[in-house]
Design a protein around this nucleic acid. Structure first.
Lengths: 153, 153
DNA sequence: GTTGAAAATTTATAACA
DNA sequence: TGTTATAAATTTTCAAC
């Protein structure tokens, strides 16, 4: 799938995605055009899904995180949950609690309102909420260290 | 904190962070240097935390997600959890289950090994694991729609 | 798949409204 | 703060290897 140079490029981009191509080329010791070509192919193959800016949620009235275990029998529940504003993640999980939902809200008042919305969704039998006191770690970064020196994948 | 133009810029960057400054300037109808200045200040003020490439986890042997409820009495548990490879998130939550941990692994075998590691951490009394069957939605994007037309913040 | 060079575009900087 | 203008740097393309 990719070689060590690709991994190196991805490591650089994971660290800081909005840097010039020429700078990436310098760090991996290749011509800018070659790096551009590799990045293009990584994008085409779906290995790179996209580029995001990481905003500080607290600056946008979204400082409160919570996880909600949703027990549901409705097939359409997942989509309905995904469309609720401030829902950031919806995972279908094994076991009696059908879905695990992550959401961000401004405060406890807003959280209460959102939870009411979720409880009112068709098919939802019960919900159990866990409010986050403090987020110690939160990253989307993929661990690439194991892909170094192993040759091709 | 920021005005409508800032919000517009952030909306564009949330959609696709690795686009030229000049293109952003075109879309908001301003001079590139003015846009660059605004972005710099958003970065300085910590509103923009950084830029990330979004990689496809499945391409890096991280296709299996799971959430682990960790009941613990150790003060250092959070840090220990955060340092476990393949742990992507650690949240301290209200209630008896002290922490909620999100992790990504290659397969069930690896998951079992990681869970063993977590269970062996000092202070951990019990863990309860929820394996993700399917992720319906997973985004870090902040909802900026409410910040439009409301004037300054 | 890579290189190297040319052309188009973008970024950085400074003077100015 | 924003704009324009200029120089420096970068991106992109393409022919050749």
């Amino acid at each position: 799938m990719f070689d060590e140079i690709d991994i190196h490029i991805l490591e650089i981009l994971q660290e800081k995605a909005r840097i010039p191509n020429a700078e990436v080329a310098r760090q991996v010791g290749m011509a800018p055009s070659a790096v551009l070509e590799r990045i293009r192919k990584l994008e085409e193959r779906g290995i790179i899904e996209g580029y995001e800016v990481r905003l500080n949620p607290a600056c946008f009235h979204q400082g409160l995180s919570a996880f909600v275990q949703v027990e549901s029998d409705g097939a359409a529940t997942a989509q309905a949950l995904a469309e609720v504003p401030s829902v950031q993640e919806v995972h279908q999980v094994v076991g009696p609690d059908g879905f695990l939902v992550k959401l961000r809200t401004a405060d406890h008042t807003t959280l209460a309102r959102i939870l009411g919305e979720i409880r009112a969704l068709e098919g939802v039998r019960s919900i159990r909420t866990q409010v986050v006191l403090e987020t110690v770690k939160e990253t989307r970064r993929v661990d690439l260290t194991e892909h170094n020196g192993n040759g091709r994948h």
